[in-house]
């Protein structure tokens, strides 16, 4: 609290934290660009990528399962009375499916993924940095960026779309549960209604953007960890600040992407 007040009264501190913000963004950009250079260099470390994907999958599966189901359930329960009032109940399955597939599924999965994963990557690489394990790799003539960072970013980029598809599927199931709880409606009818309202062009942008979100989560976590300083304090900082930064970047990117999607697919 004290520091907040101090910052407000002190324009120098504010401008220096602004500079710091832009330095971080510049650093992150340079760090992420290196991915595209190093990802094509052999050795390809497929084993590592697969190992990280397995770990990420196992780590996020429980929370993502619960969340996915509840998203669908809650949206359906919320909207049901309103839709009933307007006599639009038959649109409920379509509405649940559309909002989940186009926006809520990808974004909420990405945010949960960020909270669970980028902090983990930040802490892991941060502690490798401060205990000189990254230096040790470098001294053994092994490219630590390639071995540690590229494999993790790749794993995040590839696993998030899969998780999102899974969440979408569960959310639609959750929606059915809400419908079934209040009235007797057959599963067959519900699913038919879902598929009738969903078009291919609804699914594609939602899934495409999760590749970008996955990349952001991996890159931010790895960046914070890889550049950690100041011993164990730095590790903690890398871990927490990567969640904040990854979540913010996901939301900002999403805003831009939604604008672009609407522009490309106006329908």
């Amino acid at each position: 609290m004290d520091s907040l007040i101090k910052d407000k009264d002190n324009p120098v501190a504010f401008s220096s934290s602004l500079t710091q913000f832009f330095t971080t963004i510049a650093g992150l950009s340079a760090f992420s660009l290196r991915f595209f250079k190093d990802v094509f260099l052999p050795p390809y470390e497929f084993g590592e990528v697969k190992k990280h994907m397995d770990e990420l999958g196992i780590k996020t599966m429980p929370i993502v399962t619960v969340t996915g189901f509840i998203i669908g359930l809650v949206i359906a329960m919320q909207s049901q009375p309103v839709m009933k009032r307007f006599g639009a109940e038959s649109f409920l399955p379509g509405m649940v499916a559309l909002s989940v597939v186009r926006e809520l599924g990808p974004v909420i999965t990405a945010l949960i993924f960020a909270g669970r994963v980028s902090s983990g990557i930040g802490a892991e690489l941060g502690s490798m940095r401060v205990t000189e394990q990254i230096d040790a790799m470098e001294v053994s003539a092994i490219n630590p960026y390639k071995y540690l960072v590229v494999t993790r970013i790749l794993a995040c980029t590839l696993i998030l779309p899969i998780l999102t598809l899974y969440v979408n599927f569960l959310a639609i199931l959750g929606g059915y549960l809400a419908v079934a709880l209040s009235e007797s409606s057959s599963f067959q009818l519900y699913i038919n209604a879902v598929f009738k309202s969903l078009e291919f062009s609804d699914l594609i942008p939602g899934i495409l953007k999760t590749f970008i979100f996955g990349f952001i989560v991996g890159a931010v976590g790895a960046f914070k960890g890889y550049t950690a300083e100041n011993g164990t304090v730095g590790v903690g900082k890398a871990s927490t600040s990567s969640v904040v930064m990854a979540s913010l970047l996901i939301l900002l990117t999403d805003t831009v992407l939604v604008k672009i999607t609407v522009w490309i697919w106006p329908g």
Binding site: M128, T131, E132, Q133, D135, A136, M137, V139, S140, A141
Partner: peptide, 14 residues
């Protein structure tokens, strides 16, 4: 570096 060995003060084991 391939022809040089380096023992870190803190071991730096992975």
């Amino acid at each position: 570096r391939k022809r040089t060995g380096f023992l870190f003060q803190g071991s730096a084991l992975y």
